[in-house]
Nucleic acid binder design. Structure first.
Length: 319
DNA sequence: TTCCAGGTTTCCT
DNA sequence: AGGAAACATGGA
């Protein structure tokens, strides 16, 4: 798998961060626009896991058993600023490093987008996208359980309702950190959900019974170690990783690729069945009907190793 | 009421 | 392996 990743794994997070008093500066690559990523985040309706205010991002982040609330903002051309907002909280070195790692992963700062932009400039579907959204990163979901849940919740329902379900799930079973009287939520842990019953999830407003089963089953697989990021990363390629995921009830090809794209960061992950992707292609090419799968395969023939970024950029047209 | 939504499972050649 | 049918549920 390593040969497929666009990142340099020999570097550690400390190579990208520096202290700024109590706060932290994190280095951003050249092809990066804070505004563009902020604007992407602002398209989420009814998001329960972060808050946007005055150009700054507020989010609770857990690292092991610790957690804190951070404020992320644009600093200068080369850095973002991560501020630990809880005044009298002492931040352990492990938490500090973990937060930096999380933000680095969340914004996918390790990917060199130059080759993608070069390819996209010649691609009829992508050339407009990469101009319009220059500096946008594939903002991911670093936590595997969260990524799988979000995939499952989003299956075959409109996105607005998916956000409603996620909020109910988070606010019933997640943990809230309080700052200035406002709650900042951590996504429920697999450990928490693994012990619940379908009835308990249903009582929390998770109206689709099948989804409840899938959420609990996958939580148990993660808790008992059957399913992990390490296991998936050891797959030789996307196809094999997909096989590992699709074995699980509730995870089909779409969810598998969605998770491989947004959590495992596999460049070739490609949720080709995604109705949003279809609508976006239809929009960009001014088509009367949604493209067929065969047509999409043709259109994406030149995207090798950038399928996931291409998809992410095309989605951006939908909002 | 009908149709659609960031699909998956089941069942069928 | 690949394809059609069944399935579930809220919102427009």
């Amino acid at each position: 798998m390593q040969h497929e990743l666009h990142t340099d794994s020999n570097l550690s997070i400390s190579d990208f961060t520096k202290d700024h008093g109590q706060d932290l500066l994190i280095h951003v690559p050249e092809e990066f626009s804070f505004t563009e990523n902020y604007s992407h985040l602002s398209t989420a309706t009814n998001e329960s896991l972060y808050t946007l205010r005055n150009g700054m991002i507020y989010k609770a982040i857990a690292v092991g058993q610790e957690a804190t609330i951070v404020e992320i903002s644009d600093y200068d051309e080369h850095y973002m600023l991560i501020r630990f907002v809880e005044e009298d909280q002492s931040i352990s070195p492990a938490l500090r490093t973990g937060v930096a790692q999380y933000v680095y992963d969340w914004f996918d700062l390790g990917t060199d987008l130059a080759p993608f932009y070069k390819m996209a400039a010649q691609d009829p579907l992508l050339q407009q996208a990469v101009v319009s959204f220059y500096g946008l990163r594939n903002m991911g979901i670093p936590d595997l359980y969260e990524a799988i849940c979000w995939g499952i919740l989003g299956q075959q329902i409109n996105l607005g309702f998916a956000y409603t379900l996620k909020r109910r799930f988070v606010e019933h079973f997640g943990q809230a950190l309080i700052y200035n009287g406002e709650s900042y939520w951590l996504f429920p842990t697999a450990e928490t959900i693994a012990t619940l019953t379908v009835d308990e999830l249903a009582a929390a407003g998770m109206t689709t019974v099948k989804k409840c089963e899938y959420l609990i089953d996958t939580a148990q697989l993660i808790v008992n170690g059957t399913l992990s990021k390490d296991e998936l990363l050891q797959a030789t390629d996307v196809k094999q990783a997909e096989k590992l995921l699709v074995k699980i009830r509730g995870i089909g090809p779409w969810t598998a690729h969605y998770v491989l794209m947004r959590c495992l960061r596999m460049p070739s992950a490609f949720p080709i069945d995604d109705v949003g992707l279809h609508n976006s292609i239809k929009h960009v090419l001014k088509m009367d009907a949604k493209p067929t799968k065969a047509h999409i395969l043709e259109l994406s023939a030149g995207w090798s190793l950038w399928e996931s970024y291409a998809t992410f950029y095309l989605w951006r047209f939908l909002y």
